[in-house]
Design a binder for these strands. Structure first.
Length: 478
RNA sequence: GGCGGUAUCGUCUAGAGGCCUAGGACACGGCCCUCUCAAGGCUGGAACACGGGUUCGAAUCCCGUUACCGCUACCA
């Protein structure tokens, strides 16, 4: 039988990292073992899935490159299906009408809580005498439909947890259809999963206690029971479920923070799965190849942003410069440092810049930040850099002048040539290269941090380099 | 309260009874490389929740305790 898996987020308006990881594992499973990855926006009644909220989910998935084979956006579209199933359950006497009002139920629940007792629905409406039932019906008393839990116990072999058993007596007769005729989640997923021929339900841990209810529904409906895999949760640094107060929790946030989708995927995959050895940095293709359902972990993982950034840095270094160009160009343009047109026309130069910066950046934003001195007409001197490298103004100005002269006389503006010339200069001044390079770096970039100084010179070009040194000398002499 | 799940360095994890004096990675400290930074190399500190079994032998299996998480809605 062909594997059919689905990712069924609720239309929250953004793709949560936990949801993204669930989607990723569903996707990896399909890619590795073969099968179809389906997308279904879960919405039982209230049509919360607006165009915007569904688009946010699509955007997140698209950014990550998690493509799906089919998509279903349920906006009450499958309402008839849910109602038919509920009706069938009623007809087969596996469910019953409940006339208790929400207010009554609420009051009883509160009472139970007050007594420190577990609230259970007592099944009173299931014990209505035929004439009582007829009277309620004749009076058009509103009702919900409750599923009647059979005796015995429910067990399934979870792909990540192994056998899990629930005694049926511990699960309440639960409502499957509301008074207004719309379904409750547990019925809706089961109906929809049956309709979509889902063979493996892979979802968050928080659904474990829903599973016996759903299995009983499959059985009552006479449908084949899919396999289940319950993935652990993702927590924030404080060990609590990841939420808004932990900062960025939507994948879109990480996109805007300058993360690479491959790095995000790699990081997410390692939160709850491992290839079984020390391998950590992987391409998507490698993850697909090495994925294995029996290396999924059971333990909730803490989302560590620092490791994500490290991971992103690793991917940044490994990704070819031209593959990075589109996203870097966009970021540079957005930052107002260079227009897309400029970048296109000076592509080779920008490529060199990216090659130099990507290996020392952790995010795309880092690249943009570090690219600033090479793209602006004028630079600002970082006070700390000045304090450290231009401590003594006159000697520094002198060294800089000498450096400028040496550079101006260079036969060829190429890193190797420039290095040879400057090292010779250092020797003739009776000093070391570093003593020349550091003040020069400040003159050229305003910073103490940059790629190798000869690469910087090359990047800036002869005219701009000499001009900046000139400016620095003037600045120091004033 | 009831039920279920989970438990290896601060964090992500390797570990399927002897290979464990518990390995790797992030983070942190030191050293090396070096024109700065990043990367890289070397290196230090840092964990099997606790208590009982089972076994010649347990991080690994079983039971209990504890802690944490989840569910316990006419939410999903």
């Amino acid at each position: 039988m062909k594997n059919r898996l689905r990712f069924a987020p609720s239309p929250t308006g953004y793709l949560h990292v936990g949801g993204a990881r669930t989607a990723l594992f569903n996707w990896l499973y399909c890619k590795h073992y073969g099968g179809q990855f389906l997308l279904r926006i879960e919405d039982t009644d209230k049509a919360r899935s607006t165009d915007e909220s569904t688009r946010a989910i699509f955007d997140g998935l698209n950014w990550l490159g998690l493509t799906w084979d089919e998509e279903v956006v349920f906006q009450g579209a499958s309402l008839a299906l849910h109602q038919t199933d509920a009706r069938a359950l009623l007809d087969k006497n596996k469910a019953y009408r409940c006339f208790c009002t929400a207010a009554e139920l609420d009051a009883r629940r509160k009472d139970a809580e007050k007594m420190k007792q577990a609230f259970r629905y007592d099944g009173r409406c299931d014990r209505l005498k035929p004439d009582e039932l007829k009277a309620k019906l004749d009076a058009s008393t509103p009702f919900t439909i409750r599923f009647r839990i059979p005796g015995g116990s429910t067990t399934w072999n979870d792909l990540v947890h192994g056998d899990i058993t629930f005694p049926n007596k511990d699960v309440d007769d639960f409502i499957i259809l509301r008074g207004d005729g719309t379904p409750i989640y547990n019925l809706a997923v089961v109906s929809d999963d049956i309709a979509m021929n889902i063979t493996l339900v892979m979802r968050g841990d928080d659904h474990i206690s829903n599973t016996p209810k759903q299995i009983m529904l499959y059985q009552a409906l006479g449908a084949a029971i899919p396999k289940f895999a319950h993935l652990p949760m993702i927590h924030g640094m404080d060990g609590k479920k990841l939420s808004k107060r932990h900062g960025a929790t939507a994948v879109g946030d990480y996109q805007h923070l300058g993360m690479l989708p491959e790095a995000m995927l790699n990081f997410l995959a390692l939160l709850g799965w491992s290839p079984g050895n020390d391998l950590e940095v992987m391409s998507v293709a490698e993850m697909v190849e090495k994925f294995s359902a029996d290396h999924l972990s059971k333990k909730a993982a803490v989302f560590d942003t620092q490791k994500l950034e490290w991971m992103n840095g690793q991917h940044l270094s490994r990704t070819a410069g031209d593959a990075l160009m589109p996203v870097v160009a966009k970021a540079l343009d957005a930052a107002g440092l260079a227009s897309l047109k400029d970048i296109e026309s000076k592509r080779a130069w920008f490529l060199k810049l990216v090659e130099l910066l990507k290996i020392r950046a952790r995010t795309i934003d880092d690249i943009v930040r570090q690219a600033t001195p090479y793209l602006r007409d004028s630079i600002e001197y970082d006070p700390e850099a000045v304090a450290k490298q231009w401590k003594e103004r006159e000697p520094t100005a002198k060294t800089l002048s000498a450096t400028r002269d040496a550079l101006a006389a260079a036969k060829d503006w190429a890193p190797a040539v420039l290095e040879e010339d400057l090292r010779k200069l250092a020797e003739s001044l009776g000093t070391t290269g570093g003593k020349i390079f550091q003040p020069l770096r400040v003159a050229l970039t305003g910073l103490t941090v940059s790629p190798g100084i000869f690469d910087v010179l090359e990047l800036l070009g002869r005219e701009r380099s000499l001009a900046r040194i000139e400016t620095a000398v003037k600045h120091l002499s004033s």
